[in-house]
Amino acid sequence: MNTKYMNPYLAGFLLGMVLLATIFITGRGLGASGAIKDVTIAVMDGVAPAHTEKAPFFNNYVGPGKENPLKSWLVFEVAGVFIGAFVSGLASNRLKFVTEAGLKVRPKLRWLFAAIGGALFGLGAQFARGCTSGAALSGMAVLSTAGFVAMLAIFGTGYAVAYFARKLWL
């Protein structure tokens, strides 16, 4: 079975066509962090509804008269992402429980930094109203200023701090 990755330009074209189809059919772009937000809020609303419905920020999404946060476009879309990636992994024989890390990084340290990275993304995406998908990629496709600002800020910072994190990857 061929486990090689697709030519990146072909994959990018495919991804661009999926995004274009999304804009053409639904009038909106793709996203990911929004679903993470919806799931967070749904969990909070399940554990501590009284707090969630009163807390600033969260109370914009839950409370009387509001839809269940899980019944959102992005939650369904990201559920699709999970399925699509699984199918792709199956087709290319890449399904395997494994921790991927830099050569000198032990799994536990990798998990810690992955969680920290995820937390920073979850937090930063709220300020930027989206992540690499929802703000940068989808924003660039419709030529919004926000999309380009987000892209430059994310990747610019990435290059600026990469040196200090080189031991994690090299």
Partner: peptide, 24 residues
């Protein structure tokens, strides 16, 4: 957006993913 992007940029380098790719 700039501040959020900076935070996400650090998260990208430390975590090695962004939200969409982490789900994949």
């Amino acid at each position: 957006t700039i501040v959020g992007g900076v935070i996400m940029g650090i998260g990208f380098v430390l975590g090695g993913y962004c939200p969409g790719t982490s789900v994949c």
